[in-house]
């Protein structure tokens, strides 16, 4: 099959090489971190909410495989303007749609890491969960 591997389309490689929203927010409403032990991927997400509970700013830092980092870059680009409830309602298909490629079953855990971290962070912030560190294993 050669160059142009399905799972590594140019868009994903671009987000991996030049991640959007990369860094830390100065005064986030909440921060949360997590990992995918199978690849050793790590993601931390910072979120600022406005007074109406709408996501105003998002950033992430992390390290790991191309799928996990590109997914974090793409997802964080979509979150601004969503309410926390809307964030909570996202599922893995939303992330896979964003990536726009068929992710092999073993790699879905990489793809959904940033989403799970953001959702867990919001739940901890609202006092609905006590997750110290998210894991997708």
């Amino acid at each position: 099959m050669g160059m142009g591997s399905d799972m590594y389309r140019q868009q994903i490689l671009d987000h991996y090489r030049n991640p959007r929203n990369y860094g830390e927010l100065p005064d986030p409403t909440f921060s949360h971190a997590g990992e995918n032990p199978s690849c050793g991927d790590e993601i931390r997400v910072d979120v600022t909410l406005n007074d109406d509970g709408v996501i105003e700013r998002v950033s992430f830092t992390g390290d790991g495989c191309a799928i996990s980092q590109a997914a974090a870059s793409m997802l964080t680009s979509e979150l601004v303007g969503l309410t926390v409830d809307e964030l909570d309602a996202l599922d893995r298909d939303d992330v896979l749609d964003l990536l726009g490629v068929d992710v092999t079953p073993m790699r879905v855990k990489c793809a959904v890491l940033a989403e799970k971290v953001a959702q867990d962070g919001a739940r901890v912030h609202r006092g609905e969960a006590a997750v110290d560190r998210t894991t997708t294993e």
């Binding site: 099959m1 050669g2 591997s5 399905d6 799972m7 590594y8 199978s38 690849c39 790991g64 495989c65 191309a66 799928i67 092999t104 790699r107 990489c110």
Partner: peptide, 14 residues
């Protein structure tokens, strides 16, 4: 610069 799992995925394409 390439995670081993990405490398393995690309090998799988072959």
């Amino acid at each position: 610069g390439v995670h081993a799992h990405d490398l393995s995925s690309i090998c799988n394409d072959y």
